Amino acid sequence: MSAEGNSKDPRSEASKKPDLIARGDYTPTPAGKATFFVLRGIEPFLQYSILAHGLGTSTLHRLGLRTLPQGLAAHTGISLIDGLGLSPYRLVLLGMAVGAAVKQNIWVSALSGEPMPVGGAVAVGAFNALFNSLNTYAFLLTATSASVESDFPQPSLLIGSSLYVVGIATELVAEIQRKRFKSDPKNKGKVYTEGLWQFARHINYGGYTLWRAGYAIASGGYMLGAVVGAFFFFDFATRAVPILNEYCEKRYGPAWQKFKQDTPYRLIPYIY
């Protein structure tokens, strides 16, 4: 939400501590943001190395685990895509890794005004690499893979991809809408309650939860998708939303209370 400087965060230091974002602080951090951008930009290459070349699978084999065969490479007529040598299913999973990186780099370079220290950028990069790699290895392992048939596409891929597209589009569009509102000086100190935000007060967090769950479903099936979705839902519901709510209550007062009355859902419209 809109603010200027650290003094604009009215919370106590104890309340600020569990928040991962320095709200109200717009100190430029070009080194941190550049680090974030580079790490997120190269992470899809890690997923490609796993999907195309089996990076790390030799260790899995030594543990007695089996992995899927490569499958027939896709032939789309687009040399850049066909040159990757990936099956259609693997291409979709790689596309999810690329889409997440692009979305987050748009966010850090054009939508987020808060500082991004180098340490935080490294932590976020490692977090994404870990979660995306878990998805990729879950797909490769025969015991956990969502790909249980030779047909393409498969139900888990269709459902997972749909959740992914809806979630990541919701998150991105919501953040663009809010950024445009905040960029207008006439809206200084106002709560943004329009666009997608009229359906849930933290619709961007809801979108993130959906695409993370969809990515996991497409990779490791419905059980993994449920676990991943529940993990992020729980984190947002018990940590991120309450601490942001406290900030907004103290920053916006009655305007925030009215927004809560008009928009009762926190993350996902008509659900929570």
Rank of each mutant, 00 (worst) to 15 (best):
99 G>K: 01
103 K>P: 00
115 P>R: 07
90 R>T: 09
100 A>Y: 07
73 A>Y: 08
91 L>K: 05
103 K>I: 02
110 A>H: 12
86 L>G: 02
119 G>K: 15
104 Q>M: 11
81 I>G: 02
66 R>L: 06
74 A>I: 13
81 I>Q: 04
108 V>C: 07
69 P>A: 12
93 L>I: 15
75 H>S: 12
88 P>E: 02
111 L>N: 07
100 A>K: 06
67 T>Q: 01
79 S>A: 13
102 V>L: 12
115 P>W: 06
78 I>F: 15
112 S>A: 15
116 M>N: 05
108 V>A: 09
71 G>I: 06
78 I>R: 04
118 V>Q: 09
109 S>Y: 01
110 A>N: 11
107 W>N: 08
120 G>Q: 14
115 P>M: 05
98 V>C: 05
110 A>L: 14
88 P>S: 03
93 L>K: 10
119 G>Q: 15
111 L>H: 07
111 L>W: 08
68 L>M: 07
93 L>W: 09
95 G>E: 08
80 L>N: 03
108 V>T: 15
109 S>H: 02
109 S>P: 00
80 L>Y: 11
75 H>T: 15
97 A>F: 02
119 G>N: 13
101 A>D: 03
72 L>R: 13
94 L>S: 06
116 M>Y: 12
76 T>Q: 09
117 P>V: 11
118 V>H: 11
93 L>S: 08
117 P>I: 11
92 V>Y: 06
100 A>V: 15
119 G>R: 13
104 Q>Y: 13
80 L>E: 10
114 E>I: 01
67 T>G: 01
69 P>H: 10
72 L>M: 13
118 V>T: 13
84 L>D: 03
111 L>V: 14
93 L>N: 09
88 P>V: 05
69 P>T: 12
97 A>K: 00
117 P>R: 11
104 Q>T: 11
118 V>L: 11
100 A>W: 10
101 A>Q: 03
101 A>T: 10
83 G>C: 06
102 V>N: 01
86 L>N: 04
69 P>K: 07
69 P>Y: 06
78 I>W: 14
84 L>A: 05
109 S>W: 03
91 L>M: 15
83 G>A: 07
88 P>L: 01
69 P>S: 14
89 Y>I: 04
68 L>G: 00
95 G>S: 08
82 D>L: 04
93 L>R: 10
106 I>A: 06
76 T>L: 06
101 A>F: 04
109 S>E: 06
89 Y>K: 03
64 G>L: 04
70 Q>C: 01
114 E>S: 10
88 P>A: 02
102 V>H: 03
97 A>T: 13
106 I>Q: 10
121 A>E: 02
90 R>V: 03
121 A>G: 14
94 L>I: 10
117 P>L: 08
98 V>N: 00
77 G>Y: 08
121 A>I: 05
81 I>S: 02
113 G>M: 04
112 S>W: 03
97 A>E: 01
105 N>Y: 09
119 G>P: 10
86 L>V: 09
90 R>A: 14
109 S>N: 15
92 V>E: 01
115 P>I: 09
107 W>P: 04
105 N>C: 14
